[in-house]
Amino acid sequence: MSGVIDTSTPAARDRLAAALGIARWVDEVAAGGPYPTVEDLVAAGDRAAQDLTDGELDEAVAHHPRIGERAEGDGSSALLSAGEQAALGRNDEGVDAAIARGNDVYEQRFGRVFLIRAAGRSRQEVLDELQRRLKDDDETEAAEAKEQLRQIAALRLRTLFGEDA
Protein backbone atom coordinates (compact mmCIF):
# COMPACT_ATOMS: atom_id res chain seq x y z
CA MET A 1 0.00 0.00 0.00
CA SER A 2 1.81 3.14 -1.09
CA GLY A 3 0.84 6.75 -0.94
CA VAL A 4 -1.48 8.45 1.50
CA ILE A 5 -3.16 6.29 4.13
CA ASP A 6 -6.87 7.04 4.23
CA THR A 7 -8.27 6.14 7.65
CA SER A 8 -11.81 7.29 6.95
CA THR A 9 -13.13 4.10 5.33
CA PRO A 10 -14.91 1.32 7.22
CA ALA A 11 -12.17 -1.11 6.15
CA ALA A 12 -9.46 1.17 7.54
CA ARG A 13 -11.38 1.56 10.81
CA ASP A 14 -11.63 -2.24 11.05
CA ARG A 15 -7.86 -2.50 10.65
CA LEU A 16 -7.35 0.19 13.29
CA ALA A 17 -9.59 -1.75 15.68
CA ALA A 18 -7.51 -4.88 14.99
CA ALA A 19 -4.38 -2.92 15.93
CA LEU A 20 -5.85 -1.71 19.22
CA GLY A 21 -9.40 -2.57 20.22
CA ILE A 22 -10.26 0.69 21.98
CA ALA A 23 -13.13 2.68 20.43
CA ARG A 24 -11.81 6.10 21.53
CA TRP A 25 -8.36 5.31 20.12
CA VAL A 26 -9.80 4.13 16.79
CA ASP A 27 -11.92 7.30 16.54
CA GLU A 28 -9.00 9.57 17.37
CA VAL A 29 -6.53 7.93 14.99
CA ALA A 30 -9.10 7.71 12.17
CA ALA A 31 -10.05 11.37 12.59
CA GLY A 32 -6.40 12.43 12.35
CA GLY A 33 -5.96 11.00 8.85
CA PRO A 34 -5.17 10.84 6.10
CA TYR A 35 -1.53 10.09 6.93
CA PRO A 36 1.32 10.59 4.47
CA THR A 37 3.26 7.54 5.69
CA VAL A 38 2.85 4.49 7.89
CA GLU A 39 5.28 6.03 10.37
CA ASP A 40 3.04 9.10 10.63
CA LEU A 41 0.12 6.77 11.34
CA VAL A 42 2.16 4.89 13.96
CA ALA A 43 3.16 8.19 15.61
CA ALA A 44 -0.50 9.28 15.73
CA GLY A 45 -1.45 5.92 17.20
CA ASP A 46 1.22 6.25 19.86
CA ARG A 47 0.09 9.78 20.78
CA ALA A 48 -3.51 8.60 21.07
CA ALA A 49 -2.41 5.74 23.34
CA GLN A 50 -0.32 7.83 25.73
CA ASP A 51 -3.00 8.27 28.39
CA LEU A 52 -4.99 5.05 28.25
CA THR A 53 -7.42 4.70 31.12
CA ASP A 54 -7.83 1.54 33.17
CA GLY A 55 -11.23 1.09 31.49
CA GLU A 56 -9.57 1.29 28.07
CA LEU A 57 -7.00 -1.26 29.21
CA ASP A 58 -9.87 -3.60 30.08
CA GLU A 59 -11.54 -2.85 26.73
CA ALA A 60 -8.37 -3.70 24.81
CA VAL A 61 -7.53 -6.81 26.84
CA ALA A 62 -10.96 -8.23 26.00
CA HIS A 63 -9.62 -8.66 22.43
CA HIS A 64 -6.43 -10.52 23.44
CA PRO A 65 -6.14 -14.23 24.16
CA ARG A 66 -3.99 -15.56 26.94
CA ILE A 67 -0.37 -15.80 25.93
CA GLY A 68 0.13 -19.34 24.69
CA GLU A 69 -3.52 -19.75 23.65
CA ARG A 70 -5.23 -19.25 20.31
CA ALA A 71 -7.45 -16.24 19.77
CA GLU A 72 -11.09 -16.98 19.09
CA GLY A 73 -12.58 -16.16 15.71
CA ASP A 74 -10.97 -15.50 12.38
CA GLY A 75 -10.89 -11.70 12.21
CA SER A 76 -7.79 -9.57 11.70
CA SER A 77 -7.05 -9.30 15.42
CA ALA A 78 -7.21 -13.09 15.89
CA LEU A 79 -4.99 -13.67 12.86
CA LEU A 80 -2.45 -11.10 14.06
CA SER A 81 -2.42 -12.63 17.53
CA ALA A 82 -1.87 -16.10 16.12
CA GLY A 83 1.06 -14.88 14.04
CA GLU A 84 2.59 -13.00 16.94
CA GLN A 85 2.37 -16.00 19.24
CA ALA A 86 3.64 -18.39 16.56
CA ALA A 87 6.79 -16.27 16.40
CA LEU A 88 7.61 -17.38 19.96
CA GLY A 89 9.20 -20.47 18.45
CA ARG A 90 8.76 -24.17 19.09
CA ASN A 91 6.61 -25.36 21.94
CA ASP A 92 8.45 -26.26 25.13
CA GLU A 93 6.26 -28.34 27.41
CA GLY A 94 7.89 -27.15 30.63
CA VAL A 95 7.94 -23.47 29.70
CA ASP A 96 4.43 -23.63 28.26
CA ALA A 97 3.12 -25.23 31.47
CA ALA A 98 4.86 -22.55 33.55
CA ILE A 99 3.31 -19.82 31.38
CA ALA A 100 -0.14 -21.40 31.80
CA ARG A 101 0.31 -21.50 35.59
CA GLY A 102 1.62 -17.94 35.56
CA ASN A 103 -1.38 -16.81 33.49
CA ASP A 104 -3.70 -18.20 36.16
CA VAL A 105 -1.81 -16.50 38.99
CA TYR A 106 -1.67 -13.23 37.04
CA GLU A 107 -5.41 -13.27 36.33
CA GLN A 108 -6.22 -13.97 39.99
CA ARG A 109 -3.88 -11.18 41.11
CA PHE A 110 -4.68 -8.48 38.55
CA GLY A 111 -8.12 -9.49 37.22
CA ARG A 112 -7.16 -9.54 33.53
CA VAL A 113 -5.11 -11.63 31.12
CA PHE A 114 -1.36 -11.12 31.04
CA LEU A 115 -0.53 -8.88 28.10
CA ILE A 116 2.89 -8.75 26.47
CA ARG A 117 4.30 -7.90 23.07
CA ALA A 118 5.21 -11.41 21.95
CA ALA A 119 6.93 -10.32 18.72
CA GLY A 120 10.69 -10.58 19.05
CA ARG A 121 10.54 -12.62 22.25
CA SER A 122 11.13 -16.28 22.98
CA ARG A 123 8.84 -18.39 25.16
CA GLN A 124 11.43 -18.24 27.95
CA GLU A 125 11.58 -14.43 27.72
CA VAL A 126 7.78 -14.27 27.98
CA LEU A 127 7.89 -16.51 31.05
CA ASP A 128 10.64 -14.40 32.63
CA GLU A 129 8.63 -11.21 32.05
CA LEU A 130 5.47 -12.83 33.43
CA GLN A 131 7.29 -13.87 36.59
CA ARG A 132 8.88 -10.42 36.96
CA ARG A 133 5.59 -8.60 36.48
CA LEU A 134 3.78 -10.78 39.02
CA LYS A 135 5.84 -8.91 41.64
CA ASP A 136 4.50 -5.50 40.50
CA ASP A 137 1.93 -3.55 42.43
CA ASP A 138 -1.41 -2.89 40.70
CA GLU A 139 -0.51 0.60 39.45
CA THR A 140 2.90 -0.40 38.10
CA GLU A 141 1.45 -3.42 36.35
CA ALA A 142 -1.39 -1.43 34.76
CA ALA A 143 1.19 1.03 33.39
CA GLU A 144 3.28 -1.88 32.04
CA ALA A 145 0.24 -3.48 30.39
CA LYS A 146 -0.64 -0.15 28.75
CA GLU A 147 2.93 0.16 27.44
CA GLN A 148 2.68 -3.36 26.01
CA LEU A 149 -0.57 -2.35 24.26
CA ARG A 150 1.20 0.65 22.68
CA GLN A 151 4.00 -1.60 21.43
CA ILE A 152 1.54 -4.16 20.05
CA ALA A 153 -0.49 -1.42 18.34
CA ALA A 154 2.61 0.04 16.65
CA LEU A 155 3.64 -3.36 15.29
CA ARG A 156 0.13 -4.12 14.11
CA LEU A 157 -0.27 -0.73 12.40
CA ARG A 158 2.94 -1.39 10.45
CA THR A 159 1.65 -4.84 9.50
CA LEU A 160 -1.88 -3.75 8.59
CA PHE A 161 -1.04 -0.52 6.76
CA GLY A 162 2.55 -1.08 5.60
CA GLU A 163 3.74 -1.68 2.08
CA ASP A 164 3.22 -5.44 2.37
CA ALA A 165 -0.38 -5.11 3.63
Rank of each mutant, 00 (worst) to 15 (best):
E147K: 09
T140E: 04
P36V: 14
R47F: 02
E72G: 12
E125S: 02
R90L: 14
D40Y: 04
A82M: 06
F114A: 02
A31W: 07
D138S: 15
D54P: 04
L41A: 05
G75C: 12
A44V: 05
E129S: 12
P34C: 08
L134H: 09
D51T: 07
G111I: 09
A44S: 14
P65H: 06
R133F: 01
L127A: 05
G83C: 09
G32Q: 05
R133A: 00
V42T: 10
A48Q: 03
V61Q: 12
L57G: 04
D46Q: 15
R70H: 13
V95C: 06
R101W: 12
V29N: 05
G120K: 01
I67G: 06
A82F: 05
A97T: 02
A82E: 02
L79T: 15
A97D: 07
G33Y: 07
K135Q: 13
Q108I: 13
G21H: 03
Y35L: 11
L88C: 03
A18C: 01
D137T: 10
R112D: 11
A118Y: 06
Y106D: 08
R117P: 02
A62G: 12
P34Q: 08
E72A: 09
A86D: 15
L127W: 03
K146N: 07
N91Y: 03
A119I: 11
A23T: 10
E28M: 11
V42P: 02
H63K: 12
P34F: 08
D128Y: 10
G94A: 14
E141Y: 05
A142L: 12
R47C: 03
D46V: 10
L41P: 01
D92E: 15
N91T: 14
D104K: 12
R123Q: 07
A98D: 15
D58I: 09
V29H: 02
R112T: 10
V61W: 08
A49F: 05
G45S: 09
Q124S: 14
L80D: 08
R123A: 04
A44Q: 03
Q85R: 09
A43S: 14
I99P: 00
A71S: 11
A118T: 08
F114T: 00
N103W: 01
Q131K: 10
E144Y: 07
A48D: 08
L20F: 04
R66F: 07
S76I: 12
V29T: 08
Q124P: 06
A49M: 02
L127C: 08
R112Q: 11
L20Q: 01
D96Y: 00
A143L: 14
D136R: 14
A43L: 13
L130A: 03
A44M: 05
L115G: 01
G111F: 02
A98H: 06
E107Q: 12
Q124M: 11
G68Q: 00
A17N: 05
R47N: 10
R70Q: 15
E125D: 06
A142C: 13
Q131E: 15
G32S: 05
L88E: 08
